[in-house]
């Protein structure tokens, strides 16, 4: 999906728990704030992974029966034994604990269909998906932030209007369709399909990743652009920017220290929320470009009901998403003293 639902206002309010007339704080409570964010992240991670775990238990069919061997040739006794080996007779919390601790050690079990261990299957594919997501993220940020600054600086100019038009179009273009468009346009000029590891040839690696990264990053870039531009327009019209100007602070400094820094807060929130959409989108874009990432693996897993594989893929994505949001929370607290110095959420 190119975009996930975004509600800047609601989330901004959630994070910027303002206390108007709070006491003069003693010293930065950053450590406390980080600890709180960490605790919340752990609660969310446990909840989300439990949900994933339970979900996989809903899959019809007895994994023990599948794993024990082809139908008909195995006795009930053998199945029962497999069940015990897999721990499927244990209470659910025990099973969850066994699964999650094993996963923490890198042991995700064995694929029911492919016969390999899931960690072997995941290994390189995870790297490809992570690379694609990361490249798209940085490509988008590197493009969207400077353009949004320029657009806000020359508000209403033709270039600003053009950038906004491209931005609102970009939000509406699904990444997997943009992938197809890029393929149609660039087939014959650039190698379209496949993957080359950076260790093998950096140039080939970049050449193979550029179109997927553009396809995946475009919608994200458009969203970052719109958010940051809107934020800048607001802060540039704010009273404190007027004060800074009234006291003769040079315009470049007004822009950097006063306007951009404040405008960046909602942008940061959007980036955190969208990180999930970015990774989901990576799964789809990989399919279009035949990149050997998690996308193909998870789709095959879903189709063949290979629950250890699906479970592991979702677990990995959820954990990355939670960690990314934790990082965003910490950066947010670093930038915004109102969050850092107030106790927890309102």
């Amino acid at each position: 999906m190119a975009v996930q639902l975004t509600v800047p206002a609601a989330d901004g309010g959630r994070r910027a728990a303002r206390r108007r007339d709070g006491p003069v704080a003693r010293s930065g409570r950053l450590a406390g704030r980080v600890a709180l964010s960490l605790l919340q992240a752990v609660v969310v991670a446990v909840g989300a992974t439990s949900a994933v775990f339970l979900l996989m238990r809903l899959i019809p069919g007895d994994p023990a029966r599948i794993l024990a061997g082809p139908g008909g040739s195995v006795t009930e006794e053998q199945i029962a034994m497999t069940r015990r080996e897999l721990g499927l007779d244990d209470p659910l919390p025990v099973q969850y604990w066994d699964w999650i601790t094993a996963a923490a050690r890198g042991d995700f079990g064995t694929s029911l269909v492919l016969g390999e261990t899931v960690s072997d299957l995941l290994g390189d594919r995870l790297v490809v998906t992570a690379q694609l997501s990361a490249y798209s993220f940085w490509l988008a940020v590197a493009l969207a932030i400077p353009v949004s600054v320029a657009a806000a600086r020359w508000q209403g100019a033709a270039a600003d209007r053009a950038a906004r038009l491209v931005g609102s179009t970009g939000i509406a273009v699904p990444s997997f369709w943009l992938a197809l468009l890029l393929i149609i346009v660039f087939q014959g000029y650039l190698p379209i399909f496949g993957y080359v590891p950076a260790s093998e040839s950096l140039v080939d690696h970049v050449v193979h990743m550029i179109l997927p990264a553009v396809a995946l990053g475009a919608g994200f870039a458009a969203l970052v652009f719109e958010t940051n531009r809107a934020g800048l327009v607001e802060t540039l019209g704010s009273d404190y920017v007027r004060t800074a100007r009234a006291f003769g602070i040079p315009e470049w400094r007004v822009f950097g220290r006063y306007a951009l820094r404040n405008a960046f807060l909602p942008t940061l929130t959007i980036m955190g929320i969208q990180a999930g959409a970015l990774m989901s989108g990576a799964l789809l874009v990989e399919n279009a470009f035949a990149l050997p990432g998690m996308g193909r693996l998870i789709v095959q897993g879903v189709l063949s009901r290979d629950y250890p594989v699906v479970q592991a893929c979702i677990l990995v994505i959820v954990v990355i998403f939670v960690v990314v949001n934790l990082l965003m929370d910490v950066i947010y607290a670093l930038v915004d003293p109102r969050v850092r110095r107030s106790r927890g959420r309102a």
Partner: peptide, 21 residues
């Protein structure tokens, strides 16, 4: 918290899990 947990599962990924089931 339940809402937060729901938000921590990217919609498409959650959908993949449900479709697997």
């Amino acid at each position: 918290r339940a809402i937060d947990i729901g938000l921590a599962l990217p919609s498409l990924v959650l959908a993949l899990g449900l479709i697997a089931a």
